[in-house]
């Protein structure tokens, strides 16, 4: 009992310390890793990219951060989202801005799945347009190099594993993308469902993912898989492939059964029966009454004659 209590106290203290320090971080310091901090854009920050970035900013960022320089950010949030044209925000390197935008933290959401890498850089281009003293350092990255990359996707039913192979066919020979980040997704109606975590390939360029056994596919069990490879040298490369590895799913229409709320042709039989019976009884009684009235009429006619 005592032991447990101590453990509990230690845990609480630890959690509390972590929370407080996290809070402190989120207030000011984003603690961006050095390599990410040094990252530069391969997109030129000019009027075109800034213009495209403005549209993206207004759609995704303005609701909290407000318009740059207008001081109309959302004051009810804690911390208050900074004005991104401010000197303090502009002090951040392109790499830091990119990292913050990509990962997010606490109140600030991640835009990794919302904006492509190109789009994220365009937003930063827009933000830099408010900084007169800024000069861009372009990344040496060559977008054309992505064409050299060859991706391959295979599935082993016995072990239920999906294997991705990522290599680049350089002039010098086949190069393994050993520093690349490889992600596997299953396409869903509104977005991509990531399968396990992103991993780096092994020395032979293979990345192996355990595929869940219970993921629904279409009627035949087909699932559209997407492999996304992100590499510092080769950029973003994607491969799509349909495989029959999901659970065949063919759920009936939610309107299939008879129900009290369904359309009249799908009404429960007891209601149809009772309603029709009621109307039928009424019709018979009415017919009887009309018949009786006509008999009275005829009888009177005969008497008069």
């Amino acid at each position: 009992m005592f032991r447990k209590n101590t453990n509990l106290k230690v845990t609480i203290t630890l959690v509390f310390t972590v929370l407080v320090s996290l809070q402190a971080f989120s207030q000011n310091n984003w603690n961006v890793p050095a390599d990410k901090k040094a990252k530069n854009s391969y997109i030129k920050f000019d009027a075109t990219s800034a213009g495209q970035g403005e549209a993206l900013y207004n759609k995704n960022c303005a609701s909290c951060h407000g318009n740059p320089g207008k001081g109309n950010s959302m004051k009810t949030l804690n911390p208050i989202p900074p004005d991104l044209s401010s000197a303090k925000s502009q002090e951040l390197t392109d790499g830091e801005l990119f990292y913050i935008l990509t990962t997010g933290r606490g109140v600030m959401p991640s835009f990794k799945s919302v904006l492509s890498e190109d789009e994220r850089w365009k937003v930063i281009s827009y933000l830099r347009s408010f900084n007169k003293g800024y000069t861009q350092v372009l990344s040496k990255f060559d977008p054309n190099k992505s064409k050299l990359v060859k991706l391959d996707l295979s599935y082993d039913a016995a072990t239920n594993k999906v294997t991705v192979k990522a290599v680049a066919n350089e002039k010098s020979g086949v190069v393994v993308l050993k520093d690349a980040e490889i992600s596997l997704f299953a396409t869903r109606y509104f977005g991509r469902l990531q399968i396990e975590k992103s991993i780096r390939p092994d020395a032979t360029g293979l990345a192996v993912f355990n595929f869940p056994k219970d993921l629904p596919g279409d009627k035949k069990g087909t699932v559209e898989l997407v492999v996304k490879v992100t590499d510092e040298n080769y950029g973003e490369i994607e491969l799509q492939k349909n495989l029959q590895i999901g659970v065949p799913t063919d759920k009936p229409s939610l309107r299939a059964d008879r129900a009290i709320w369904n359309v009249v042709t799908k009404a429960p039989l007891w209601i149809i029966f009772l309603y029709s019976l009621g109307v039928l009884v009424f019709a018979l009684v009415l017919a009887y009454l009309v018949f009786s009235l006509s008999k009275i009429w005829k009888s009177g006619n005969n008497n008069q004659k």
Partner: peptide
Amino acid sequence: LNWTGSGEQANL
């Protein structure tokens, strides 16, 4: 309805 007050009509 041609009411004459006959027994038949009264019964009906």
